[in-house]
Design a protein around this nucleic acid. Structure first.
Length: 541
RNA sequence: GCCCUCUUGGUCAAUCGGUUAAGACGCAGCCCUCUCACGGCUGAAUGAAGGGUUCGAUUCCCUUAGAGGGUACCA
């Protein structure tokens, strides 16, 4: 069989040789240990935490090694493309401050020397390598009926392939030149399949950066290299693209682990050096049946990366949380370096998690609380305002019109050694400090509380806001004492019947009058921010 | 069915043959205190099961179980 002749029959217009292409993509000039990796999303929807998780591992490996991180748009499946999805990918990356070294711009230009970075623009490249494979007898054209639905494919395969799991040789692998020509003359479309060299008995070992050495059965299927629409499915595109682009670590989801032997054989057939793999597990949730299940956009709002912005989580909180579940070294590092930026964490390749983590919103909240607790009142205000501008314009207007006051509110119990840690997302501040932004409503119920009115009437008499907290507290105590409240808690506890209540009770009344709530930050601090006039108005009801 | 991966408290997890099996979140209690929070202290809670190997297994090996993934002209 003259394979070269066959190749020319299949691809009469492809004249370029693989060598010429390879020469155009010289090896990158890298120092020892520098990682070249990529984020290769399909523009099929809104960015999912799983994509982001995987991207973030890839990005971190590049960053810690001072390597190259690039973006490749995998848009070979035009049917699944969703409008706006491309722009959305860039939007999320930008929001999180993820810097990409090489990428395709939205209007189709390339930044970087190893493009095109959009797969749909690389069709010729794939055909050059496919033709070469045919010419060397390592691949062949397949004219089997293309099927639309999965069932049909499987039905088709049942009759086509052996059931013994040893080999899956395609019936077209031994078509003669004449038979191929006949098909072509009839106008039949062809796919290209790999002519596997294996017999189903061979085993291979490959190394995974997370899981270590993995032994598996070598590929023994004549897998598709080029679909009959001329576009390669993932494995062939991966081999060609990542080789030409100089990728040296491929970070991808665990779902690819099983097909790695296929990829390895394709690399070998092409004469390419294999690339290191890092198969990361999926982010999970506990399902209704108590088992792990992949976190899903449909059921879990937190699966969508935009969710964190809608809710108003600081981006650092989300990133740190992810680092926390990606890399077991992070939390310890954070404990030792409480004030360092997350960017300074030395991401250890050996510490990447091998177990599918269960997403824990409570932990995220905790990390977020600590991050927000370290911010100044001005920073909180700016973040809150930026969030409101995007998601709650009316609130943004209020915040801008009352900037000074709003900053004071943001500053409540902030700073100092033991800052308050209640707030973990911007969207909760408005409700949290609602009583500072508006007078409390639902007064009637409060007014009916026993002794409430009596105390406040007395307390409001001649009320002035002292300059010192001690003085203020003395005032509260004096009113309380006058009305028969205990100001010494030990005495009160020993004999509660003798009193109307204690200082705590008195403070509760004041707090209710000011905030409408039984819990709030320090009363005196609130009074100072509200001002004497507003405080008095609220005390008088 | 077959193939691959994973399995330490509720969650994230440390240990890389010898520890009273760290730490964080969450939970409970106590202290502080004008409430709540913060902070401090204390506590409950973990090696999937069964076999080996070893003086000694959470750690190494095997079996089983469970979970996840794959088994497409999807990625």
């Amino acid at each position: 069989m003259d394979y070269q002749k066959l190749a020319n029959l299949l691809y009469p217009n492809v004249k370029t040789s693989p060598e010429e292409i390879l020469a155009k993509y010289p090896p990158r000039n890298l120092k020892q240990g520098e990682v070249v990796s990529r984020f290769a999303p399909s523009p099929t929807g809104f960015m999912h935490i799983g994509n982001f998780f995987q991207m973030f591992i890839s990005y971190s490996l590049c960053k810690v090694s001072n390597g190259v991180f690039f973006l490749r748009m995998e848009d070979t499946d035009a049917k699944r493309e969703v409008e706006g999805a491309r722009a959305f990918i860039y939007d999320i990356l930008n929001r999180f401050g993820i810097k990409v070294d090489e990428y395709p711009t939205l209007d189709g230009k390339d930044v970087g020397n190893y493009g095109p970075y959009v797969q749909s623009q690389r069709k010729e490249l794939y055909q050059i390598f496919a033709k070469d494979l045919v010419a060397r007898g390592k691949a062949f054209p397949c004219f089997c009926k293309k099927t639309e639905g999965k069932e049909e494919i499987l039905e088709d395969r049942k009759t086509k392939f052996l059931e013994n799991d040893e080999t899956e040789y395609d019936p077209c692998r031994d078509l003669s030149y004449e038979e191929v020509k006949e098909h072509l003359d009839r106008g039949d479309k062809f796919a290209i399949r790999l002519r596997t060299k294996n017999t189903g008995k061979e085993r291979i070992v490959f190394h995974d950066l997370i899981k270590g050495d993995i032994e598996a059965k070598a590929n023994a299927k004549d897998v598709i290299l080029i679909k009959n629409d001329g576009i390669p499915p993932y494995p062939f595109a991966h081999a060609v693209d990542d080789t030409l682009m100089g990728t040296n670590v491929v970070v991808r989801g665990e779902e690819y682990l099983g097909s790695t032997p296929v990829h390895l054989e394709i690399f070998e057939a092409l004469g390419f050096k294999p690339i290191a793999y890092c198969h990361n597990p999926a982010v999970c949730k506990i399902g209704e049946n108590g088992n792990r299940r992949k976190i899903s956009k449909r059921y879990d709002p937190e699966a969508k990366m935009l969710y964190y912005f809608e809710e108003g989580y600081p981006k650092e909180a989300v990133l740190e949380y992810l680092l926390n579940i990606i890399n077991s070294g992070f939390e310890g590092w954070r404990a030792k370096n409480p004030d360092a930026k997350w960017e300074d964490f030395k991401f250890g390749i050996n510490d990447i998690t091998a177990v599918a983590p269960i997403f824990d919103l409570l932990k995220l909240n905790d990390i977020s609380k600590n991050i927000i607790a370290k911010m100044s009142a001005e920073e909180v205000y700016e973040n809150w305002l930026a969030w409101a501008k995007e998601f709650k314009p009316a609130l943004a207007d209020y915040l801008e019109a009352n900037k000074e006051y709003a900053i004071k509110v943001c500053g409540i119990d902030r700073g100092g050694l033991k800052p308050r840690k209640d707030i973990y997302k911007w969207s909760m501040i408005q409700e949290y400090f609602s009583y500072m932004l508006n007078r409390p409503t639902e007064k009637e119920e409060i007014d009916n509380i026993a002794n409430y009115k009596e105390f406040l009437t007395e307390y409001a008499k001649g009320f002035t806001l002292p300059a010192e907290k001690d003085e203020w507290f003395a005032g509260v105590k004096s009113t309380a004492e006058k009305l028969g409240y205990a100001t010494d808690n030990k005495l009160y506890k020993a004999n509660p019947e003798a009193y109307k209540g204690n200082t705590a009770k008195a403070c509760e009344y004041i707090r209710l009058a000011l905030t409408g709530k039984k819990n709030s930050p320090d009363i005196y601090e609130l009074m100072k921010i509200l001002g004497e006039k507003e405080t008095l108005a609220r005390l008088k009801g």
